[in-house]
Write a protein that binds this DNA or RNA. Structure first.
Length: 459
RNA sequence: GUGGUUGUAGCUCAGCUGGUUAGAGCAUCAGAUUGUGAUUCUGAGGGUCGUGGGUUCGAGCCCCAUCAUCCACCCCA
């Protein structure tokens, strides 16, 4: 048979892993710098832990796992009955009770709910693991991909909301990606729906206005109309969409709009606090985060209740490369009420695609071992092997060509594996206790004593 | 879930309105060159044209099905 990969998954070769590792390391470094500690959770969760947390569309994209043991003939009749329920769109525990993790936030909430007694609050954790979605793959979209999340639970402080803006900024500065960091507040969106007297239609309103940049005002109005909103309501939304200017000007316009809506005023205050903190902060090594109040930013996850973030890469069309927000009751569904939190996520695979396309990976990542020892014959190679072991003991990576092949071939092997130095020890060199070290990049070579090799590579 | 694209050598692709033994570049291997490559020259190997059916005297090319791929929509990292 011809083997294939499941749709939307990939193998990662050495080069790709090195580059991905560079992204992971950068993110991890910043997370640690801000005092977050690591957490890992299983790839599998109980299906009912996940369902209902991501909206109707999200639920459809959860990978469900078929239970084992269904081939037991005594259970066939029951299984057939249960399968009919599946066809009606219900999930049935006797057929499927486990699912692959859809994101990192809900498993984190589950963990907090199970362990909150033991955790030091506020609990700051980061998590870098794969997640799975049964989506159709396309550009920048995979069925298995990695997220790097940082969340804080157990605090209402908006200091944290601002801190995440710094984290986003710092990570992408370190990676060399120019970003647009957009902020909005779920409270503002709810207030808009309230203003329209359409609190129940809040989701469809936000979904529609989120597309403004993409499809334009007319199409947005059409979609609102299709969702059952009347002309007066659409007019209110249109006025909202016409709010423009600097961040402060936008917030000022909102203030007059939400004059009688407490929640809206709170949302504005929250954003103002974050903006002031960013504004007054000293210029750090990576500058100050530049954020953009983006009133049409929605984000699909329905557990957000406050500030929401979205990161887009400039100069490239790939969707968002990060997102997050504040939620005031994430663990409530798991029996632990009043557990506020805020968190963000990095989409590693899209960040990789951006960096690859814009050529942002540093040269030095592509390196293989430091040196290749040439194989100049059976006896010579044994000698070279022992020399090599001494270098390895000093932490210098090297390898030996396995057969006494033509030098031409050994050189090509070295350059293909991005090895910078060739070490040649033939019978002559053994006699004189020396070796030839050739710098394959500069195309220069020197003959040095065997006892000098270590120094040559550690200099 | 809906719509479309593509599938030919290890890789990237040519292949005319259906017509003999299906081509190129790169890669691989061998030789010119028994200790100096990435940047020389010569030669060689490698394909049941995604798979299964059909139309035809004849199919890589047309039709149907199926699988895979990429792209767009929905939604999202």
């Amino acid at each position: 048979m011809k083997p294939t990969l499941p749709q939307g998954t990939r193998d990662f070769s050495a080069q790709v892993i090195r580059k991905r590792g560079y992204i992971f390391d950068t993110i991890r470094t910043v997370f640690e710098l801000y005092g977050f500690e690591p957490l890992e959770t299983p790839a599998l969760e109980n299906l009912d832990t996940l369902t209902g947390k991501y909206g109707d569309e999200g639920d459809k994209l959860i990978f469900k796992i078929l239970n084992n043991g269904l081939d037991n003939s005594q259970k066939h009749e029951q299984a057939k009955e249960d399968f009919k329920k599946i066809l009606r769109g219900k999930s049935v525990k006797t057929l499927t009770e486990k699912a692959l993790r859809y994101d990192l936030t809900i498993p984190f909430a589950r963990y907090v709910a199970m362990n909150y007694g033991q955790l030091t609050m506020p609990y700051k954790r980061y998590q870098m693991q794969a997640v799975w979605r049964a989506d159709r793959p396309q550009k920048g979209r995979y069925r298995e991909f990695y997220q790097c999340d940082a969340d804080v639970v157990g605090s209402y402080s908006f200091m944290y909301d601002a801190e995440f803006a710094f984290i986003y900024w710092e990570v992408f500065k370190r990676l060399g990606i120019d970003i647009e960091l957009n902020l909005n507040n779920r409270k503002i969106l709810t207030s808009l729906a309230a203003l329209c007297n359409a609190t129940d239609k809040m989701m469809s309103i936000t979904v529609a206005i989120d597309k403004l940049d993409k499809i334009g005002i007319e199409k947005v109005k059409q979609e609102l109309e299709k969702n059952g909103l009347g002309p007066r309501q659409i007019k209110i939304i249109e006025d909202y969409l016409n709010i423009k200017g600097t961040n402060q000007q936008k917030l000022d316009s909102l203030k007059t709009l939400f004059l009688n809506i407490e929640e809206g005023k709170k949302g504005i205050e929250e954003l103002e606090f974050i903006l002031s903190l960013l504004h007054d902060a000293p210029e750090g090594a990576f500058g100050k985060p530049k954020v953009n109040i983006h009133l049409t930013l929605a984000r699909g996850l329905n557990y957000y209740t406050g500030v929401i973030y979205e990161v887009k890469a400039k100069n490239i069309e790939i969707g968002s490369i990060g997102g997050g927000g504040r939620y005031n009751d994430l663990t409530g569904l798991f029996g632990v009420p009043d557990m506020p939190g805020v968190g963000i996520s990095f989409g590693v695979d899209r960040i990789y695609d951006v960096m690859d396309e814009l050529n942002l990976f540093p040269e030095k990542m592509q390196k293989g071992a430091t040196a290749l020892f040439f194989n100049m014959g059976t006896e010579e190679s044994k000698f070279a092997f022992f020399q090599m072991q001494q270098l390895r003991a000093k932490g210098i990576s090297c390898e030996l060509f396995p057969e006494p092949a033509k030098m031409d071939k050994q050189f090509k092997y070295a350059s293909k594996k991005n090895i910078n130095y060739a070490v040649i020890i033939g019978s002559e060199e053994i006699k004189t206790q020396s070796c030839v070290v050739k710098d394959l990049v500069k195309n220069e070579q020197v003959t040095i004593g065997l006892n000098e090799i270590k120094d040559y590579f550690t200099k």
